[in-house]
Structure formats: C-alpha cells, structure tokens
Amino acid sequence: MSDARSRMVARAAQEIAPGMVVNLGIGLPTQVVNHLPADFPVCLHSENGLTGIGAMLPYDEADRNLIDAGGAYVSTIPGSAFFDSAVSFALVRSGRLDLTLLGAFEVARNGDLANWKIPGKFSPGAGGAIELAQKARRVVVMTTHCDRKGNPKLLDACTLPLTARGRVARIYTDMAVVDVTPNGFALRELATGVSVAELRAATGASITIPQSDIPTF
C-alpha cells in the first residue's frame, strides 16, 4: 500500500469512537482495525451474523464455520454473538449501527453514493451495501481520490447507479479529508505533500477551501 493510502487508513481509524457499533466494508475499511489499540472498546458487526469480530486467522487455525462478510476467516472475542441474517440487518436498519465505512466508485457533492454497479462491466449485486449506506447513523467513505485511470471520484452528480441518496457525511482519500456539507464538498485536511491546486484538479466538483491553515495527515 502506498504511504498516502496507509496514512488515510490511519486517519480514518479516528472515526471510530469508544462504545460504537461499527460495520467495516470489504477492502480498505477493514484495515482501520490495525490502527486501534487491542483493548479499544468497540463492537464490530459483520453482515453474515456476528457482533464482536476477532482477529483474522491463518488457514491452518481457521474455523470453517466462522467467516466475516468478505469471506475472511475470523475469530471471536469474549462477548461475541452469532445471529441469523434477519437479526443482522434488523440491527443495521433500526438505527443501532453507529457508523459504516464503505468504499466508493463515485460520491456526489450532495452525499449520493455509487459503489455497487458499473453497467456492462461490474454487476455482482449489492449484498448488504444498500442497507448499510441507507441506514447507518453515519456513513463515511474511504477511497482513492481518483480511479485507476485518473478520473475523479468526487463529482457534482453520480453517473453510476446509486447505492443511497444523500447519506455520505465524510470522505477519506489518499489526498484529503472532505466533508459533505449543505453547500457541497468542504476540504478539512490535506495529505502531506498535496497542494490545494492538485486537489482541485483531481476533484470533479467545486470544493470549499478553508481560509485558515489546513491541517495535514
């Protein structure tokens, strides 16, 4: 992982406050746990029916019946619980899920999120992403600022099929921390070595820049 990306993961880990119930999306979001102290008081939720996710296990120590929603072999911790898929999403939809960290293909300046389908190229189904994005109390996106071809992912409006409307509160990228506000994107922090001009050039929508010094991460 690039240095900027690992600093983004470390910075996003600060989203997780003591006592929260949190769902981490597959990929980069899963890695934020590496930046939390081992005794940090948080309840991690997995869609396939687990609260209290323990460490990932190597194959020769794994339990064949115990995976996370991404298919990784995980473990339990003292206090873990198993439940069925209806209970799992009851937790998501009823407001008990404090935070979800998700990946994104596109995020719009009004908080719209597209992260499940690229018509004609990628349509494996949304799994639980729609419920997570629509119902978690706080929805935070972690993504590279641009796609592999260098196209911006932060846009005036999403072009891809939506996962949820107006739900993204904040975006962590390898270039910046950006909030979604009633007035559109607002820069909060810059990655070390990134200039405001570079950020503007890599962003597909206007972005409000603070007058004061901009913190870096």
Partner: peptide
C-alpha cells in the same frame, strides 16, 4: 438487498403477504 431478502423469507415463513420498506427506494432496485 441482503436484509430484505432475509425479511421476505421471514415473512413467507410467518404466513405474511409482504413487507414494507424504504430500502432501495430511489435506486434502481
């Protein structure tokens, strides 16, 4: 949607006709 599939099946198992939900509203689902 994953939890809605679970609830549709649960409703079927509970002898109900349907569920009402806002999940997926304003999306292509």
């Amino acid at each position: 949607a994953q939890g809605i599939l679970a609830e549709r099946i649960r409703a079927g198992g509970a002898g109900l006709g349907a569920i009402l939900t806002d999940i997926g509203i304003e999306t292509e689902l």
